[in-house]
């Protein structure tokens, strides 16, 4: 594969994963637990967007925005009805994590009940892909990159130039203090869920547009998304973006590498070309995850 093509594919994959990893890492930072329902809500939101777009005929962008807002709202409601109570009760973060796993199972199957298991395609115009430095890129993919970039700039501004962002960073820096002013931080936590799930829906929809939409989508991306967040140092949103991009590159490079020369030991054995079977693509992020955990569990940007 052309190097330029690898770069384009990696950027797209990294952009999509970033939007998902940001929310995961933020919830972990502020609330201290890994949310195993995160990507399930992303898939659920993608289904909502699909429904608005293809069944109700609403414009795609507007559909995604609506779906993101709605899913964000669900995030707030779930915090009010479940997590806030558990926090007040001083429930262990471990319990919260297992609850999110149960929640994820429920959401995934609610999608399956509503939209069935059959795969869906977002209706996209079929246009000639553009060629940039030898790499093929469709207009849809360009749009994905563009929107991801805007979303990330917006996130940065949100974090640094709004009251919400400042409060969030203050909570992140000093969790003891934040607990003392509980009312304020409760509101911030709800906004955080909103942002986390809205971003997840944007990322999830992008993945669904590029590939397919089906109820198990959320489960299928849970490992790469966690991997991205951990790779970047869990708890750090900028790290999450960096981790997602790194993972995107790693996946695409490993898939296109020919390990043949490596195993022929300088031509000693004739093994021909040896490429990782695409069946193992989902395992790459797992291997990277294990490597990170072995070498530097705090991630690229984390301290030791």
């Amino acid at each position: 594969m052309e190097i330029s093509q690898i770069i384009v594919n990696s950027l797209i994959r990294g952009a999509e994963l970033s939007l998902l990893a940001i929310g995961l890492t933020m919830v972990y930072d502020i609330l201290g637990f890994a949310n195993f329902a995160h990507t399930e809500f992303a898939a659920f939101g993608a289904f909502l967007g699909f429904t608005f777009n293809s069944l109700l005929g609403i414009n795609l962008l507007l559909s995604v925005v609506l779906a993101a807002l709605l899913t964000g709202l669900i995030g707030i409601l779930l915090d009010l009805s479940i997590f806030e109570k558990l926090r007040a009760r001083n429930a262990k973060t471990l319990t919260m994590m297992i609850i999110t796993m149960g929640m994820g199972i429920a959401i995934r199957n609610i999608s399956r009940l509503i939209w069935t298991s059959s795969t869906k395609n977002f209706p996209m115009p079929l246009l000639q892909p553009l060629k940039i430095l030898g790499a093929r890129i469709t207009r849809v993919q360009l749009g994905i990159l563009f929107i991801a970039a805007i979303s990330m700039v917006a996130f940065h501004l949100l974090l640094h130039h709004t009251k919400f962002g400042k409060a969030l960073r203050a909570i992140s820096d000093n969790k003891e203090l934040a607990r003392a002013s509980a009312i304020d931080s409760a509101k911030m936590v709800q906004w955080m869920w909103f942002v986390a799930y809205s971003y997840a829906v944007i990322g999830g929809t992008m993945l669904a547009i590029e590939h397919l939409l089906y109820p198990r989508l959320g489960f299928d991306i849970i490992i790469p998304v966690f991997c991205a967040a951990i790779l970047g140092g869990i708890g750090n949103p900028y790290g999450a973006v960096l981790g997602a991009l790194t993972l995107g590159f790693a996946e695409n490079v490993i898939i296109s590498l020919d390990f043949g020369p490596l195993f022929s030991l300088g031509g000693l054995f004739d093994v021909g070309s040896l490429q990782l079977s695409t069946g193992y693509k989902p395992a790459i992020s797992f291997m990277i995850l294990i490597l990170v955990l072995l070498i530097k569990p705090t991630g690229i940007l984390g301290e030791n």
Binding site: G102, I107, R108, N109, L113
Partner: peptide, 10 residues
């Protein structure tokens, strides 16, 4: 069935 099991866990 799985919705029930998920909700049961929660």
């Amino acid at each position: 069935r799985m919705i029930v099991i998920g909700l049961l866990m929660v």
